[in-house]
């Protein structure tokens, strides 16, 4: 119990609280000044942190030292309602003219509401793309096709000599470099070392595969030189390019789809068709 006149402890608590609030105000001013001087993320953060920490300390000391803590009890009326009250409420619903007893009308109302609810679902169709391509179909088709030339990241068409040995070159379909499912990579390998031929064939060791991992669709950008393997940075799936891009480690289960290529009459590389399988992650109707 507290005496009417503040005790020395209370006086010192009051002084600490005032001090903390003054520090808080200083922090706020510091923030405004920092902002006005051009802003520095670190100092702005520190000033705001000081401002709020000052508030917090002041309020916490106030709550601990100057107001009663603990020692109160509140009754709990429990959640079993009085039986009479429960019965009366139930009677309201069971009265002869209660709408809940008109079963026929309720059924009709239910029918109308269900119809409305179902009708309200139809506009959801508008959220689907309107290009009339069913999503599974869209996943199977890519911009690649017979005669589409291979270009590099800058849009320059590639000749066979542009793909050096022991490195991977990202290639894109000409005219559609931003398509999500089109990225592929070209590598030059020694055909003697193939333990299994590439699915899309090769041009004297030059092979093109889809760049999208067959696990979750990340680009397999890490080429482990010498081993003929590529690695996906997302979940560490690894594919053996010398064995038909078979998945050899990690969570991927299917090989990378290959891209059949040829050298066109203009001397540039071009595809002779789409990937040998839908690129990227698997889905229900994937062949």
């Amino acid at each position: 119990m507290r005496r009417p006149t503040p005790s020395p402890a209370e006086e010192s608590a009051s002084r600490r609280i005032v001090g903390a609030f003054l520090v808080s105000a200083a922090g706020a001013v510091g923030f405004a000044v920092t902002y006005g001087l051009g802003g520095d993320t670190r100092w702005e953060g520190v000033c705001l942190a000081v401002a709020f920490a000052g508030l917090a300390v002041g309020l916490a000391v106030w709550a601990r030292r100057l107001v009663p803590v603990g020692g109160y009890v509140e009754e709990h009326e429990g959640f079993t309602p009085p039986p009479a009250e429960q019965a009366m409420t139930a009677a309201e619903f069971a009265a002869p003219d209660s709408p809940t007893r008109r079963y026929g009308l309720l059924a009709a109302l239910g029918f109308a509401l269900t119809a409305l609810g179902v009708a309200a679902l139809f506009p959801l169709r508008s959220l689907l793309p309107w290009d009339r391509v069913r999503p599974p179909r869209a996943l199977k088709d890519t911009p690649w096709g017979a005669g589409v030339r291979l270009v590099d990241g800058t849009g320059r068409p590639l000749r066979p000599d542009d793909v050096p040995a022991e490195t991977m070159v990202a290639v894109f379909p000409e005219g559609d470099p931003d398509a999500g499912d089109a990225p592929a990579f070209a590598v030059r390998l020694d055909p003697e070392r193939f333990s299994r031929p590439p699915a899309g064939g090769h041009l004297g060791g030059l092979v093109v595969w889809s760049m999208l991992c067959t696990h979750a669709g990340c680009p397999v950008r890490l080429y482990l030189k010498g081993t003929g393997r590529v690695l996906c940075p997302c979940h560490q799936s690894s594919f053996d390019l010398l064995a038909g891009a078979r998945a050899v480690a990690g969570p991927a289960a299917r090989p990378l789809p290959g891209l059949p290529i040829e050298v066109g009459p203009d001397g540039f590389l071009r595809a002779t068709g789409d990937f040998t399988a839908p690129p990227g992650a698997g889905f229900w109707s994937r062949p």
């Binding site: 993320t41 670190r42 100092w43 702005e44 953060g45 520190v46 705001l48 942190a49 000081v50 401002a51 709020f52 920490a53 508030l55 917090a56 309020l59 916490a60």
Partner: peptide
């Protein structure tokens, strides 16, 4: 509340 904001702004700034 003030503590939460203080810690968050300290993290956000530093």
């Amino acid at each position: 509340f003030a503590w939460v904001l203080a810690v968050l702004f300290a993290l956000g700034g530093l």
